[in-house]
Each structure stands twice: as C-alpha cells, then as structure tokens.
Design a protein around this nucleic acid. Sequence first.
DNA 1: GTTTAAATTAAACGTTTGTTTAACTTTGCT
DNA 2: AGCAAAGTTAAACAAACGTTTAATTTAAAC
Lengths: 210, 210
Amino acid sequence: MEEYSEKQLAILKVAERLFADQGFHGTSVRDIAQEADVNIAMISYYFGSKDKLLETIFRYRMEASRKFINELLENNTLEPLEKINSLIDRFINKMLGEQYFQCIMSREQLNSQASPVRDLIWELKGEMLGLMQPIVTQAQEAGIFYKDVDVEMLMTTLFGTIHQVIPAQHILKKSAPATVTNDDEFREYVKTRVSTHLKKLFKAILTHEF
Amino acid sequence: MEEYSEKQLAILKVAERLFADQGFHGTSVRDIAQEADVNIAMISYYFGSKDKLLETIFRYRMEASRKFINELLENNTLEPLEKINSLIDRFINKMLGEQYFQCIMSREQLNSQASPVRDLIWELKGEMLGLMQPIVTQAQEAGIFYKDVDVEMLMTTLFGTIHQVIPAQHILKKSAPATVTNDDEFREYVKTRVSTHLKKLFKAILTHEF
DNA sequence: GTTTAAATTAAACGTTTGTTTAACTTTGCT
DNA sequence: AGCAAAGTTAAACAAACGTTTAATTTAAAC
C-alpha cells in the first residue's frame, strides 16, 4: 500500500481527467504537467514514464475496487432480490462516482494489444462476475430465481448500460425534467433513472415478477 | 454518394482496423500507409488529412447505417414483439459485422471535445431511438406492452451490451462449448448467446411473459 | 507523338512527442 | 553549521509525428 504526496496526487488526478477526455495517446505529458502545475520532469521522476503513470492510476483505482467488492460480500442478511438491488445501486454509485476512470477503462479495454493494464481490467471483471454469480446461483437453487438466465451476459448488460450512460449524459441533460436545475440534482436524476431501469430489468428476468 | 478507388478502399479498411485496435492517436499515418502498402503522401493526397480520413470512415459507415435503418422501417406485418426481436437480431448482426467501426465509435463517443465525428454519433443514436420508440409506444397503446418502460434506457442497454460484448470476446472464447472449433462457429455462438439474452430481457420487461 | 492531368514517389519540412541531463534549491539529520 | 538525500528546474535530446514539396511516372486525350 503506497501513499502519494500532494503533488503526486495532483498529477494523478489531472492525468486521469485528461486521459478520460482525450485518450491516453491524445494527452501529452506537457498537458498534464501544465494543468497540474508541475515541471514536466516530475512525471518521469515520480512515476517513471507516461505508461507507468497510467498503470499507477489503474492500480490506485483497482485497489479501491477490490475493497469495494469485499464490502459487498458482507451483506448476508438480505433477500436475494434485495441483494441484487443493493448491488446494482452500489455499482452505479461506484462507477458514476469515478466517471473519469470508467472512461479510461472503456477505452483501454478496446486495445487489441496485450498489456498489464488490459489484464487488470479483465481480472477485475472476473471478480465482479464472481460476486454476482453465487448470489444468483443460490437463489436459483432455492427456487427464488429462474434458471434460464445467462449471468455472465447479465453482468455484461449491467456494465454496458452504465458505460453507455456515462458519455450519454449530455444528451440526457436535454430530456431531464425542469425540476433538475443544478449539477448535483442532475447526477441524482441520472442515478435514479439508471437504477430504476436496471432494477426493473433484473427483477423481470430473475423473478418473473413486477 | 462518392465512390472510392481500390487503393482508397485499402487505406480506409486498414485505417479502420488500426484505429479500432490502437485508437486514433495511437495509430500513425506511417503505420496505415505501410499496412495498406501505399506511400505516406497518398493519405493526404486522397483524404486531405488524418482527421479527414477518420471523418471519411465515419461518413462511409454512417451512410450504410442510414440505409440499414430505412430497411428496418419497412417491416410492418410483424407483431410488436416479433418486430422487437427482429430489430435485436438485425442490430446484433450489423454491429458485430462491423466490429472495427463499432470500436472506433465506442472510443470517439468518449471524447469530451465537440467534433463533427461526435455529432454524427449522437445524431445516429437519436435515429436508432426514433426507430424503436414508435414500435414500443404503439404496442403500449394497444395494451400489448407494459407502460412503465424507459425506452431510451432500453436502447442504452441494447447498445451497451453489444458494445461490451465486442471487447469481451476473447474472454467468451474460454467459456465457449467444445462444439465451437473455428472462427465462424465462434461468431455464430456469440451472436446467438447475445441474441438469446437480449430477447429474453426485452420480452420480460415489455410483456411480463416468458 | 505530343500534351495535359492525375498518380506516385522519396525526401524534407517544422512540430511535437516522451525522456533525460545537469545544475540548482530545499529539506531533514547529526 | 555541514552534509547528504530528495525535490525541482530549464534546457536539451533523439525519435516520431502529420504534412508538404518537388521530381518522376503513369494514364488519358487529342
């Protein structure tokens, strides 16, 4: 568990935003240094290289994701469907709370070349699947969930929907109700809209009830 | 309606693949020229610039997508659910048939900076929504589909799921049954798996039946 | 066969890229 | 105070970038 100085965190934060907005190769270390208000050489000095900087961002966020998964494993008192609903909400909160990083993930998972970053992504996705799989399977065996459900695809739908929503937000802004006036309200509006949609979807296909 | 020479098409094809695999900024015009077996200068000569080359790819694919949409509008004899199912299958076929381009779209839609390419993407997405919306609405008014469905979100789920499946294929390869031996069979396997999943999902939430 | 335009080439253009250097400043420790 | 390590800087580095140039070849028209 490494800790980062204020300056290092400033670089990481700026780099994450720029990588998300313009892509890794679309962002120069000079852009990052300027916006983070540090000398260009500091990036190599701290992180070794631009590639390593990206990897650092990934390891930093991934560590948090691991913690996140372990926290989810503790809720054992809930009913299966409530567990799923809680899981959906937590996923939405997590992913919309780190939108910049999710954008980078969206981009990097498309790279055809193998890389440490790409491996990390699919490793994490596997862990996420391993989180949902037993919940569904147990409920299926208890006769609460129906059996003709492709859990892997369901997880794909969960990720895919949220990953589509992130860049679609500037479109959703137009169809938002008039009660949404500031950014916080809009974030909440998006959250509940995605949440409501996904919960309905999961409930319908898992329990055949409404 | 422009037509392209063999050499121009070779450039477009190579560029599309490389942009998909490595990103726009991750691909140099020298890479493209080398793989397409043409002189570097030909790219500027034919398309003006690297940016214009990307835009050309987009306009080329978008034109096909428009035709695709218009074809879908003609099927009026089917039942609402059959219409939806047909639409799902056609979307899957279309998008998995032009995976390279879909990868580029996935990437480009994340760009925060406004650009002609980004505008084209959301324009097209709007048209896709306009295709599904009336089908659902009419069926809702006829009492065939339930009303508490967020069609915009459902479309997001459709796109999102397929866009997630594309980079996930090398993972799906591992969980494929032993009957899948070559690439064609695998493509078919992926198609039917996504299709089955999405149809179940749509049927469940739209009709409350199974 | 001559002429004109289009196609194609290798080379060079000026920038920008990520990274490193070497000098300098600050910090913390004894 | 004195010293060593860490932090910070402007400048320079070679390599790669997208694009253009000018010369040459090919093709088409008359």
